[in-house]
């Protein structure tokens, strides 16, 4: 019995505790990101935003959540019920699962795996399934058109994200997320790889279906796109997954380019704040830019979106990849094999 506890149950319970420690703040963050989005947009449009429920509208996300929880889940009669219900679950689960490898401080990570970047890339490339399954299973033209657009868009921008990640990896020489952050102790990668940073951020906007690339749910032409047939908690799961993905993409941007948990300079006033706080601040900064972009830019036309992905970002990131490799080799800065 003691062996069973020490061998399996004890570590298992510890892992579950760590998972809860990440998921609960994450869901709270998602809830308050929706409020922050409405507040920021309101401030940029000289409005007040939600300010009725609770002080400064702080209870608004809880009220929204309660409303969605109590609403009826309607399954259209022409829909494929299993896939229809599986789609929001897939979206939500994938958005949560990716956080397993995100390091919040040195060694503060649930699963410190060697291929952390590839894991994140794999999970984020799976996000398209929730959307395409929802569009197909709804048996509705609008939903299907939204899903097809989204699939094409996400697959296209994944390519340039992949090249950006490769150029960062070349500078680090490791696929481990902790190593990537530690490699930025002297200089954040956002400075030497600034063009790649911009490409990555714009591709992240497209990958999360955010404005100005929110074609999959373009309300002017597709009503609401892939989630038009969803209601109640199934809709809420899509919403939560989408916002959790935004936070995840911001976290990836911070880890790959903004030095993760590291303070801007390794000297006294900056080092007083602990690592996770710096990490959260960087994520918040990226999220603010997400919202800022939404308040500023009009939606792209679909062919322009594809042109940007395939004819601008893909050749450009490929070119910068070659330049980065050339510079690393020419100056002897390429990281050596550790083993």
């Amino acid at each position: 019995m003691a062996e069973l506890w020490h061998g399996y149950l004890g570590p298992g319970a510890w892992i579950v505790f760590k998972i809860l420690l990440i998921v609960v703040p994450l869901l709270l963050g998602v809830a308050y990101l929706t409020l922050a989005e409405r507040k920021v947009l309101a401030a940029m449009q000289l409005r007040k935003g939600p300010n009725v429920v609770g002080p400064f509208g702080l209870l608004q996300p809880l009220a929204d959540g309660l409303k969605l929880l109590l609403k009826e889940t309607i399954i259209p009669s022409g829909a494929n019920p299993v896939v229809f219900l599986a789609a929001p679950m897939v979206t939500f689960i994938l958005a949560i699962v990716a956080w397993a490898v995100i390091p919040f401080d040195y060694g503060l990570v649930v699963a410190n795996i060697n291929v952390g970047v590839l894991y994140l890339f794999a999970i984020s490339s799976l996000g398209v399934y929730g959307i395409i399954m929802a569009g197909w299973a709804s048996n509705s033209k609008y939903a299907f058109l939204g899903a097809l657009r989204s699939a094409a868009q996400m697959v296209s921008y994944e390519v340039s994200i992949g090249f950006v990640i490769i150029s960062v990896l070349m500078c680090v020489g490791s696929l481990n997320l902790g190593d990537i952050v530690l490699a930025q102790r002297g200089l954040w990668f956002a400075i030497p790889l600034f063009p790649m940073f911009v490409v990555f951020f714009i591709s992240a906007l497209a990958e999360t279906n955010r404005a100005p690339f929110d074609l999959p749910e373009a309300e002017a032409e597709l009503v609401a796109g892939y989630n038009v047939e969803y209601s109640g908690m199934t809709f809420a799961l899509f919403f939560l997954g989408e916002y959790a993905n935004m936070i995840l993409m911001s976290a990836m941007t911070s880890i790959l380019f903004l030095g993760g948990w590291l303070p801007p300079l390794l000297i006294a006033p900056f080092t007083w704040l602990p690592g996770p706080v710096w990490f959260a601040l960087k994520i918040a900064l990226c999220l603010f830019v997400f919202l800022w972009v939404r308040a500023t830019f009009p939606r792209y036309r679909y062919d322009q979106l594809m042109r940007l992905g395939w004819k601008v970002f893909l050749p450009f990131s490929l070119f910068w990849l070659v330049v980065t490799a050339g510079v690393l080799v020419a100056f002897g800065w390429a990281p050596r094999l550790a083993g």
Binding site: Y119, S125, Y129, I132, L148, A151
Partner: peptide, 26 residues
């Protein structure tokens, strides 16, 4: 072989099967 596992998911699930699904649905 965690590298192979991730590449399998990225290439086959993330790209090839999406296009497959795309075509089959249409």
């Amino acid at each position: 072989a965690e590298f192979l596992a991730m590449i399998l998911v990225i290439v086959y699930v993330g790209a090839v099967a999406v296009l497959f699904l795309f075509v089959v649905m249409m």
